[in-house]
Amino acid sequence: MLIIERLTKTYGEKKAVDDLSLHIRPGEIYGFIGHNGAGKTTTLKSAVGILQFDEGNIIVNGTSLKDDPVKCKRQLAYIPDNPDLYEFMSGIKYLNFIADIFGIPSDVRQEKIREYADLLELTGDLAQPISAYSHGMKQKLAVISAWIHDPALILMDEPFVGLDPKASHLLKEMMREHCDKGGAIFFSTHVLEVAEKLCDKVAIIKQGRLVKAGTMEEVKGDDSLEEVFLELEAE
């Protein structure tokens, strides 16, 4: 579903991501962990075509992001760490905008909006301008906008930040359901307990380089993910 091959991205002199390779397969929830500034966001932004990278390749469902970025982007959704959405729009206008871009028919989008907005308890606020939303409400709207076009691959940067416990729980269920239907999810998080319980696979990044990746069992063995992570960080 998503192949990241020898990805390298530099900012001036600093290598934010250094020769990173990952393979996310259909049905997998793939966690991405690392300390602040390790290169998680840069990797995610490169994988969705926001950042241009220096070396390597990113392949989404067999299509290279460099060769056909629009085709790749049609198959994925991205939720950033800080949901800076169009504040001049209302929630419903933003969802319709995203649905228009992905060419979702009117009846289908209406049904999806109803389903996810009801689930995340945002229906009553959809007519409100996004500028009046709290951080959590914006995050919920970003989640709905990602799920509305039924993407094969969803990339999320710290998706649980700002969500209330109920919404967090619902998002985890949505993620599992999405992958059970053959989709894939690649997300970064600092909440190691969540990663440990939710992810099928996990990758640990340190100073732009991949230090460990694999199934949860392969990475943590008999220890907790937190212990493994702290051990690797200390090295």
Binding site: I104, P105, S106, A127
Partner: peptide, 14 residues
């Protein structure tokens, strides 16, 4: 607060 009323919108091109 503006109350949300569900209605079908016409699909637009990109």
């Amino acid at each position: 607060k503006v109350r949300y009323v569900e209605k079908t919108v016409k699909r637009k091109s990109e």
